[in-house]
Every structure is written in C-alpha cells, then in structure tokens.
Design a protein around this nucleic acid. Structure first.
Lengths: 462, 462
DNA sequence: GGGTATTTGTCCGTATGTATG
DNA sequence: TCATACATACGGACAAATACC
C-alpha cells in the first residue's frame, strides 16, 4: 500500500518528518493501522511522497522510540500493540459472520444461470490462452468498432445460423446488449423520443432508453407479439422486440406478424431493434431466421452469447443498416470499445474453428432433453393440478398451477423449500390459478426430477 | 562503540568544532588512531556527543584539508588511507529492443499508445491463467455492480494511491469510463440538463452526455482550469473535469482552484465528475490527491487503468457519493456489468498482490526518464527555435515552434516523414509560432533521440 | 530446491536555511 | 557581516532478507 494521500504541507512551519510522525501516530491511535500491520517501506514512501529516505526514517524512528513501531531489520516496520490492547483481553479473531440463509437454494430455476457442466470450458480456456501468448495483441488498444477478425467471423456466423445479412463493416461489437443500445440511442437521438416495447419489457433495455431520455411505451400484446393496432396508434417510430424469445412468455413472433411489423417500419420510416436473444437456440421446431434476414433496412439486429458460450463472457454485436452505419462511422472514434479485446479475439478463433456451431448443436440437444424431462416430470408429479402453458419454449417452462395463493406466494413457498422459481408478472390469482416460470438452463439433467419432487412437497406438504 | 572520551568543554571560548578537530588531530599524532582506521560516522558522533552533524563535519573537513583524513564518499572518513582507485565499473546501458516499425509511421507521438516493452505482460498473463483455472468463476454471470473482490481491492488501492475514500459498496465497475458515465447520466438524468467542461473537452465523455441528452457547455479556462466566473455564470449544476491531467494542456488543477470548485458544488448543490485520468502518474512533483479525497459528497470519482496496466484491459470504476449510491442501488439490477469477469478477478488479484503498485512505481520512473530525455533531445536539436511550454506534464510535452506554418501543417510535415504528432487545438499561427503536442507514452526510450532527429529533418530539410 | 533479482532497514556524506551572537 | 551551531532534508551505497523463477 502506498500512502500518497498523506497530505503534507511543504509550507507549514512544522517539519515534514514531524507531520509524517503525527499522521502515522494518529492513524495508529484511531485504529486505521492495527497491531502487526506492516508500514510501507521507507523507500516506497519516500518515492510516493517525493521525500528523502532520511525524512521518512526520522519519523519512523521517532515512532519506534515512543513505542508505536518496531523495526524488524530488512523486513520492515510494524505497528506494536498499544497499551489498551495489552490491558484488554485479546480480542478473538474476527469472524466474518455471514447472514446464514435459512432456506438454502438447492435448485435454482431463476433464469440467469447456465448449467456449467455441459459447457466445454477447456476449449474456451485454450483459446484464451492462445491469445494471451501473442504479446502484440494485449499490449495495444482495441479497435473502436471491435476487432476486425471477430467482425468478419460474426458476419459469416450470423449469416449461417440466423440468416443475418451483414458485412463486417456493418457490425459493431460491445460488452453485451446494453452498451450497444447506448450507442444506438445516441445515433437515433434527435429523431426519436419514444420507444415501444411489449409490456412488460426487457428491463435492461428500458433502462438504457430512459437514461437516454427516450420514453418507453409499453404496448399491449397478443400471443403473436405486440399488437399492430396499438403500435400504429402510438405513433412511435422506434420499436424494440425480441422476436425469438419474448420476455415472460418465451414465445416467438410468427412470420405473418413479422411481415406486418416490417411493413409498418418501412411505411412509417421507423426503426425496429431486433434483440435476437436466444435466437440460435430454437430446437423443437424449425429455427425461424432473424427478422433482419428479411432484407429490411429498417432493422437493427442485436446478438449476444451469454447463454451460448459462457455467462462470464460479455460480448455482443449489432448490425447497423447502411443509413445508421454512416451516422455511426462519423462518431465511431468517440466510442471506446467496451468488450475485452482478448475475449473478442478468443471468440473470433472459437467461431472460425467451428467450435461455436458445435457447441450450439450440443446445447440444442441438451436443452431439448432437459425441456422434455422437466415437462414430463411436472406432469408426473402434479397431474391435472398444473397445466403447461406452451411446450415450445426455449429455456423456460411456464406453468399454470391450480391454487388459492398468488404467484409470488407459491414462489415463496417453493423458495422456503430450496427451490427458486419466478412468478409471472401481471398474473394475479383470479380464477384459482397462478402462473410461474421455471428456467431450466442452470439445472443439471440429474437434478430435474428431484427438483420437481421437492416442489411438489413444498406446495402440498410444505 | 561510543566516543564519550572525546571530552568537550561546552563553555569554552574555543568553538566545539575546533575542540573536536584538535582532539582528533592529537589522537592521530599520538597513534591512538592508526593508518586506515575508520572514524566514527558523522551521525554517530553527532548523536553520542549530542552535537549537530554539521559541527562534526566541519572538524572532519578541516582534518581532510590538512591531510590527516580522507573522505570516501558514502563510506566514511579514514585516517591517512591508501589512496584507492574508486574504479567503479560502469554498467553498460541497457538496450531496449526497437518496437516494430509501422508502414509509414516510424515514431508515433499520438497519445493513445503505451510503450509495450515496459509492461510486464507475463505477470498479467499468469493472473489471467489462474482465474481461468477456476471453473466455477467463468461458468457464472458476473455481479451487476462488479466483482466484490475487485471492489474491495479498489477501495484499498484508491485510498492508498489517490486518497479516495470509498467503501466497496460505493464502487461501481465498468468497461471503461464511458459505460460508467452512461450509468451516471441515468442517475442524474431528470435533474441535470447541462454539463460543463473545459473547452475543448474529452470527446468520449461529450458523446455520452449528448447521447443522454445532456447538453454540453464548453466553458473558458485559464491556467488553473475552468474559470470560476464562467462556471457560476453558466448556472449549470454538473461539471466534468480531469483535474490531474487536463485535456490538451496536461496540467493539473492546483489546490486553491480545487477548493473553489468544491465550495461551488456545495453551495450550488451541484455534482462534479472527477475523471482521475492518469492521476496516479504524477512523478516529478508530489502527487496531488484526488479531489474526492477532500471529503465532499458532491464528487463522483472515476478511475481507470488503460495507461497503467495494459491498454487492452478495459476496466474502470466510479465511486458514488451516498446520495447517488442509493439511487443507483435501486436500479442496479437493470444494468448488466460490462467489464469482463475474468479480467476483473485477475485485476483484483493483481492489485491484492501488490503488482499494480509495483507497476505504478516502475512506470513513474520510466515516464520520468522519458520525459527528461525527450525534453533534452528537443532542446539539443532545436535550440531556440522551440520553447517547451511546461516541463511538468504527464505523458506529453507541449512545444511552441517558431514557424510560419500552422500547427496542423507542421504536424502533416512531420507525419510525411514518419513522425506522428498532434496539433494543439485553438492555437492558430498568429505570432510566428505554432503549438504541437508530443505524447511519449508509446515511444521506447531508445527511439526518442532518433525521433527528434527525424522531426528536425522533417521541419528544416523535409 | 537452489540461484537470482528485488526489496528492505540501515548507514553514509552532503546541502540548505536559519537562529544567534 | 561573519562564524558557529543546529535542524531539516537529500540521494546514494550496503548487506541481509525476501520473493521469484
């Protein structure tokens, strides 16, 4: 630890070593420096404070004489126990008392986890390692728009997997969806005062909009997505949607609604932000390509990898249509890249070597199996007391439970028994049922049955 | 050994140094002190005899002049010693490997590079590797506010190095200054419509403000920073400054102006965003602590590591005052962490193990040496044709060049000859001089002289 | 586990400003 | 004004302990 902060007054009448002595003395007396603490070495402090060694030494020695410090030759100066410490019985060592959680979560169906066992960490680690060994890479700044290699890889990957048509020049990298949205809001800034979303929307996106003073409009929706009449009525010119994996329901927007939306955007000269969250992951049915692939120049595509790769890797990308790209390039230098350069390049190699698509295939199978198993387990355990809303979802299952309690109440009951599940918002118990959501991405296959059993116990015998 | 036997008469008319001189002289003549004997050091004797060092020194020097003693620097005084040759073998100067040469730019004095040779990449790589080996880390999401370990480490580090008073709870991590500013703008959002900056300001920050629809006001400044009268007149309630390393000039804001600014903020209920860019790097003078250390609750401190660690590592942090912290915590879940979890944890260990402070010391020395060398080289090469505006800067030197061309013209001339330098804005050639800036962070020591030579060639013979 | 580079307390001679007669 | 004496501060050299590889 350095002590640059020690404020010394060069013009003061009290000499520097005296000031230093007093400061340290008070630090010891106030307990900022405790018994046994090592003081900064004379040299370090001298360098930090731009003083001579001797000055520091004089202060230290004065403190030694007065019994505050001991000097252990060639090892350092240490704080001695003061008188109070001697008289008082030795304090017991500090216990870091963690607030013990009464009900430990055994099975977490919260949606923000990923089942770690089934991800090949070794391969990722190897890629990172390879990048780290290239000194010229980590010693230089990253490109503002993102590493060219990665943009090229993403251009090919997103076309192959999602049909996204994007040249590397159109792709902007960022540390997840939010920083990309921030930039996007800047580009749209002057022309757009409102953003429409499904209600309830994606909170992280709403936050960015509201931070950029773009007002969020929650529009009503039906089972196909946002309602066209409401959209047209709203007179907004900006729409944010996740057509592949709608918030709350996990449903996707069907083709005909997609056409309607695009038609709306082109007629209205509007912008649609397509957040392709989990777009790659469809598995039971044929994957629906991204809306961006339908060729409209009114769509900004945003993709990310949190559920696909490792949750700790925060790299996302957006594809700007030509008009916005021109605007972006004018200000590109004003945005520093947010994603880690190393992770960008590792991801680039990971994609180029085909690992990501291999991983994708593996995950599709895995999640498919998990989904089936979970649904079957639920049916076996609860029979007609539950109804599975939609089987064709992505990483979560939505249940309608026959109960007199509210959604949040039955979630609490589950949590007390070690199973964390999420209530579905705006689904108050009216008709003797409550809706809850079980995200299974983070539950290992072998845990699914026991988790369901425990849930049953919680609700019926808890 | 004590030397009490040297009995001195404090009340005598003969001065103490004279008495001492005589005593030693007679001791030598009488053979009590023999050839080659080492005399007690000035300090020891001064302490034993309760005299000042100078008194002893005077005696010794008189004896030296008279040929009784000889002084071997840093070793001691000796009686009639054999004249030994102090042939200290001169260490050969370390040669640093030349950096890779770019196609056109041979010497880049642009300010966005860091001299890669002098950064210990091995250590960083090892830290990253250690983190990668901990599976449970990379398989889970990062905390919204940043990893707790890193926040704790930063809390201690920033206190030690910059005097910043921040509990880990107050610290928010992000992938550089911009994402942090985005969040901050969101927190300030409704109450602040204008942000004041020095003109010309920090473009990356301006971009964020304007994206968040906070209008940027460029206020006039003097040599101490932004002008107080202009600030008060502007009626803005938000100020963005880099007090340690002001844009363009590289100067720092002196103490009295800092007090004025804080007083202004407190009276006006305003917020000062303190971008402590390169705050750690002061080296020729004593480091000025961060403004945040002065205890105001109206300051948001922002720190980063791009010039300190590796440019490719994008991790920054901000310290929120209690009032803003409460606001932030309400929305914390709506902001995903932007900085890489792995790099966060590696940095945390890097700080905890003291590597960062070691690196800091190394860089202070290195940059100090580079600065001196560059200034000397420039003076040697150009003599009176240039004037170095301020020698106490951080990573750049500002020159006033006697020329009929404009700043940008002489920069172009330099660039055509392979030397990239930057014009100082708003310094059009009026009085037969032009101002340019040379950022030397990215130039290896061994390149400095050749670069200056080439610059001379470009300007006078190009 | 052993050799090497760094860090560390310690000590060195020296320089400066100031008070006193 | 000058010699004397002091307090303060500087920067470097040394050898032991330590950390690193």
């Amino acid at each position: 630890m350095t002590y640059d902060y020690l404020k010394l007054d060069y013009n003061s009448d009290t000499p520097l070593y005296q000031q230093l002595y007093l400061t340290i003395k008070s630090a010891i007396e106030k307990g900022h420096l405790k018994k046994g603490d090592k003081l900064p070495s004379i040299r370090k402090l001298a360098e930090d404070l731009k003083l001579s060694c001797t000055t520091i030494e004089t202060s230290y020695q004065q403190l030694c004489v007065e019994g505050y410090l001991v000097s252990k030759p060639k090892r350092g100066y240490f704080v001695l126990p003061n008188v109070e410490d001697d008289t008082k019985p030795q304090k017991p060592p500090k216990f870091e008392i963690k607030a013990k959680v009464n009900n430990k979560i055994l099975y977490n169906f919260g949606s923000d986890c990923v089942d770690s066992e089934n991800i090949d960490i070794k391969v990722w680690r190897r890629h990172i390692r390879d990048i780290l060994n290239r000194q010229e890479i980590i010693a230089s700044y990253g490109k503002h728009q993102g590493e060219p290699e990665l943009r090229k890889a993403l251009s090919e990957y997103s076309y192959g997997v999602r049909g996204v048509v994007a040249s590397p020049e159109q792709i902007v990298i960022g540390a997840g969806t939010q920083p990309l949205l921030s930039i996007l809001c800047g580009l749209l800034n002057s022309d757009f005062n409102y953003a429409a979303m499904e209600m309830p929307g994606f909170l992280q996106a709403e936050q960015v909009f509201s931070d950029c003073k773009i007002k969020v409009l929650h529009l009503p929706y039906d089972e196909c997505g946002i309602r066209m009449d409401a959209l047209k009525e709203s007179e907004t010119k900006l729409l944010f949607i996740s057509p592949s994996n709608r918030i709350q329901t996990g449903l996707s927007v069907p083709m005909n609604r997609r056409f309607e939306l695009i038609k709306w955007a082109e007629e209205n000269n509007s912008i649609i932000i397509e957040d392709d969250y989990n777009g790659e992951l469809r598995y039971k049915a044929r994957p629906i390509p991204a809306m961006q692939s339908m060729g409209s120049e009114h769509i900004v595509y945003i993709g990310s990898f949190s559920k696909l790769l490792l949750p700790s890797v925060r790299v996302g990308y957006m594809v700007l249509p030509p008009k916005l790209l021109g605007k972006y390039l004018k200000h590109a230098k004003h945005y520093n890249q947010t994603a880690s350069k190393i992770e960008q390049l590792a991801l680039s190699d990971y994609i180029k070597s085909g690992q990501l698509e291999r991983q994708l295939r593996r995950l599709r199978k895995l999640y498919s199996a998990k989904s089936s198993l979970l649904i079957q387990s639920l049916k076996d355990a609860f029979g007609k007391n539950i109804e599975i809303l939609l089987e064709e979802t992505l990483l979560s299952v939505i249940l309608t439970v026959k109960t007199n309690y509210s959604s949040s109440q039955i979630c609490d009951m589950a949590e007390k028994n070690g199973v964390k599940i999420m209530p579905v918002k705006n689904s108050d118990n009216i008709d003797g049922t409550a809706k809850v959501m079980l995200g299974f991405a983070g539950i290992p296959v072998c845990d699914i049955k026991p988790a369901v059993e425990r849930l049953k116990k919680a609700w019926y015998f808890g």
